[in-house]
Design a protein around this nucleic acid. Structure first.
Lengths: 316, 316
DNA sequence: TCCATGCCATACCTCAAAGGTATCAAGATC
DNA sequence: GATCTTGATACCTTTGAGGTATGGCATGGA
């Protein structure tokens, strides 16, 4: 049997009239007549009763009719779903988010904008540090991630720069340098403090912090490591050390913590978008396009220069 | 698009290999290749990625794949449903039942046997007197009914006789004639009693009772009319009158009611099956066949003679 | 580097079957 | 009984599905 048969059958059933159904189908009556009786022979079921005027469904025909209509509409639906999926408008996208990323307004803005543009895509948001995200990319459990690391050490994963934001020092409010809030701080002046790090070496902020201190001429003394950004600030507030954090973190006010800008050359925190280049998901393409477009609009002059990837063939 | 396309697509998706899929489909590789790409062109969606070895579904292809499989299996299901419906094995049958009919074992036996033989047919059982059933037949709300009336006064409704059972007298236990339980009673001897009737004139038992009394040489005095058989027996037990009831009613023992057989010529209660001759439902055919076969097996000698209908063209 | 292999795509041919035209047959209608 | 309506049948045309032969591309081993 053929979909044509189903379509013809449904039309005849709805019209109750082969000639009229043929007209609406844009064919002649005899072929339609033949298709119907052929279908009946194939199913070994009489679908219509031939009346003096027109035809009417038998009970078997009625049963088949409702199924046939459902099948046809389901097919239409399937086609639309496939097309939407191909256009990246439907499906699932798994987004990794570095713990400090959501403080940068670009991240929530991008996600909200994507949701609005592609309402049929369901997003799975997953917090994770760069090193945790590596594994997820390799297991193909993640499509894209907002990261703080300039490179992700996994085969075929690119990182596109979105923004560079200044690092600021988070100090306990009783710290001697916490008084003069307006003047930028010399990073050197923190060389004897303990640095509270988020996550192990290899993650974005860890590496940026160490690099910044090196550039300022000292090796940071490592304090208590903290698993999450909130606990980092908690430890700072408790006076257990200081931390360098992206400036947007200042949005997270915490009693007992004071933020101080740093003097030139201001160390920078990186915010980037990582994805597997071989991932063909059209949803991913849409997401990359939207987020990168957004980042360019917000900082067009930085973008080109900062754009990078973990290997030379950085075209998506 | 065609069902063939769907089937081919599913096979290729399952094999991940056009050549192998073609083999399993019993066709050559080139036509299959063409059908697939034709389908992709028609849907304007790339369903497969061509790999060096074989093909793999794109995300759109995956979305379409699960739908396609569901559609195909639903189609199979639809065909089976239609065939079962045509054979009268699936659907709905609305059965009317006269209030006194279920006491005759034939009725519950027939219904149970039908249920077991055709488990996919859902039965709607509806109690009703002959005169109520007429309207339901005319509105095509009823397919078949166990009735006590020998004729149903509705156009095109036939009644087939199933059984004739003796009428017995239901007497209050304090009735003078309730003592001698073994000897059959003269119907005449009840001529001065009030008769409790179930339902109005035109219903089966009413007419049979009046006819029996007429034959015995008197016109029955009508007592309180009763809507249901149970209330009839209640009124008898209360001493408000007597009733003639089918002998199988004796199964419904009720304190205060005594049953007495009647002397020859024993008046008879009729049990028949009514249906619209123009009703083409195959389920109805099956039901008629099963019940009539059952009745013949239980009373083969009565059946032929008693068979009747409300007009001359009594073939189904 | 080159050849063999595996696999999909393309070109061209054949033939089944879908659609078209003409006409018949059976009821309904007046 | 003539006419209309409507589905069925006969026969022809044409579309397109399937077959055969072959090309093209990537992989993998010598």
């Amino acid at each position: 049997m053929d979909l044509r048969h189903l379509r013809y059958f449904v039309m005849v059933a709805e019209e109750g009239h082969i000639t009229r159904a043929a007209e609406r189908l844009g064919i002649q009556q005899p072929p339609l007549s033949r298709q119907i009786s052929q279908m009946e022979r194939e199913l070994k079921v009489q679908l219509f009763r031939r009346l003096p005027r027109g035809v009417s469904l038998t009970s078997a025909g009625q049963a088949f009719f409702s199924e046939a209509k459902a099948i046809l509409s389901r097919l239409d639906h399937a086609v639309e779903t496939a097309q939407r999926t191909a256009r990246g408008e439907q499906g699932t996208l798994c987004i990794g988010i570095a713990p400090t990323a959501p403080f940068n307004p670009l991240v929530p803005l991008a996600i909200r904008s994507f949701r609005e543009t592609f309402p049929r895509v369901s997003l799975i948001l997953q917090e994770g540090l760069s090193n945790e995200i590596v594994g997820q990319f390799e297991r193909e459990q993640m499509d894209v991630a907002f990261v703080r690391a300039r490179q992700i050490h996994a085969e075929g994963v690119s990182v596109a720069a979105l923004q560079e934001e200044p690092l600021v020092a988070a100090l306990p409010s009783r710290h001697t340098l916490a008084r003069t809030r307006t003047k930028p701080l010399q990073l050197r002046s923190l060389s004897s403090d303990s640095f509270i790090m988020i996550g192990p070496p290899g993650t974005g902020l860890y590496d940026e912090t160490v690099a910044a201190c090196r550039a300022a001429g000292f090796v940071p003394r490592l304090g208590q490591p903290a698993p999450r950004i909130t606990s980092t600030l908690g430890l700072v507030a408790a006076g257990l050390g200081i931390a360098l954090v992206p400036s947007t973190l200042q949005g997270a006010r915490m009693t007992g913590v004071v933020y101080r800008r740093l003097q030139d050359p201001t160390p920078k925190a990186f915010l980037g978008l990582a994805w597997r280049r071989s991932n063909p998901s059209p949803i991913l393409r849409n997401f990359l396009g939207l987020v990168r477009g957004m980042a360019e609009r917000r900082a067009p002059e930085h973008h080109r220069a900062a754009k990078t990837a973990n290997d030379d063939r950085s075209r998506t």
